[in-house]
C-alpha cells in the first residue's frame, strides 16, 4: 500500500539570534504514514516534534526535503496549489481554548474552515455543522455557546469537529490530550480511535506520554536533537515510569517499516 504521507530528508533550520549559528531543529527526518494508521512522534521538548509537524502542515516551508502527500510533492507547490491540498491535512492543537477564537460561537468556529475555503453552503451548512457536533459527541445546543462556556474536553472536541469540517485524510495531532484530565482524555482518545476506524484517517500524533503512545499509536518514531533515532511498533515502547519514550528493542533502528 502506498503511504498517504511520505516525508523524505526533511530539514528545518531556525536563524540564530545575536550572530549565533542557525539552529538545526529538524535534521534529515524521513517517515511514512498510511491511511488508517497512527504514527506517533515522540521525544523530549526541543527534539523537533512540533517543527516536523509544522513542516508537514506546510505552515513553515522546510529548508530542504520532500513532503509527499497523496502522490504530490507539497514543497514544490506554490501557494494557490497548496491551498487546494490543505483541507486534506488538518491540525488539532494542544491548547483547546487557545486554538479557538473566544469571540466566535462554537457553530461559527466549526463553519469557519468551510467559509474560508469557499465551500460554505448557506442551506446545507448549518445541518453539516450540527452533524459534525454530533460526530464528536457534543450536543447540538452547544453550537450557540462560546469557548469559555465549555470544558477543556468539550473544546478539544470542537477542535476536532473543526478539523473534520474540511473532510481531511490526515490529522496532525499536536499533543491533543496533554492538557486534559485523565477521564476526559480517555473520552477524546476513544473518539479519535472511532473516527479513524470509520473514516480511515491517518494520524501524525505528537505526544510525550509513553503510556498514551503505547495505547493509541500503531508505530512510533522517536526524535532526539532533530533526528529520528528509531522507529518501532508502539507496543514495543518500554512503559518507563518517567514517561520518556524508550523503545525496548534496539534492533528496529533504521528505516520506517511500511505497513
Amino acid at each position: 500500500m502506498t503511504p498517504l504521507l511520505h516525508v523524505r530528508d526533511l530539514t528545518v533550520r531556525y536563524p540564530g539570534r545575536n550572530r549565533r549559528s542557525p539552529v538545526l531543529a529538524v535534521d534529515g527526518v524521513s517517515f511514512e504514514v498510511s491511511a488508517g494508521e497512527t504514527l506517533a512522534l515522540a521525544g523530549a521538548s526541543g527534539s523537533g516534534k512540533s517543527s516536523t509537524a509544522a513542516a508537514v502542515l506546510l505552515l513553515r516551508r522546510p529548508d530542504s526535503g520532500e513532503v509527499w502527500f497523496d502522490g504530490r510533492e507539497l514543497t514544490a507547490l506554490d501557494e494557490p496549489a497548496l491551498r487546494a491540498v490543505r483541507p486534506a491535512v488538518q491540525p488539532v492543537f494542544q491548547d483547546p481554548y487557545g486554538s479557538l477564537s473566544p469571540r466566535l460561537r462554537i457553530r461559527d468556529a466549526i463553519a469557519e474552515p468551510l467559509r474560508v475555503q469557499g465551500r460554505w453552503d448557506p442551506v446545507a451548512g448549518p445541518a453539516r455543522v450540527a452533524e459534525l457536533l454530533d460526530t464528536v459527541g457534543l450536543d447540538a445546543r452547544l453550537g450557540d455557546r462560546r469557548p469559555h462556556e465549555l470544558s477543556g474536553g468539550q473544546c478539544q472536541r470542537v477542535g476536532i469537529a473543526r478539523a473534520l469540517a474540511s473532510d481531511p485524510r490526515l490529522l496532525v495531532l499536536d499533543e491533543p490530550v496533554s492538557a486534559l484530565d485523565p477521564s476526559v482524555r480517555a473520552g477524546v482518545l476513544n473518539l479519535l480511535v472511532e473516527l479513524q476506524d470509520r473514516l480511515g484517517l491517518a494520524y501524525l500524533f505528537i505526544c510525550h506520554d509513553t503510556a498514551v503512545v503505547r495505547h493509541f499509536a500503531h508505530r512510533v518514531a522517536v526524535l532526539s536533537d532533530g533526528r529520528i533515532i528509531r522507529t518501532a511498533s508502539a507496543r514495543s515502547l518500554h512503559p518507563h515510569p518517567s514517561g520518556a519514550a524508550r523503545p525496548r528493542t534496539t534492533a528496529t533502528t533504521g528505516k520506517a517499516a511500511t505497513t
Binding site: 470544558s151 477521564s183 480517555a186 482518545l189 472511532e194 495505547h215
Partner: peptide, 10 residues
C-alpha cells in the same frame, strides 16, 4: 483500542 471512560461530564 478503546479506553474505559466515565460517562458524562462533571
Amino acid at each position: 483500542r478503546l479506553l474505559p471512560a466515565i460517562d458524562g461530564s462533571p
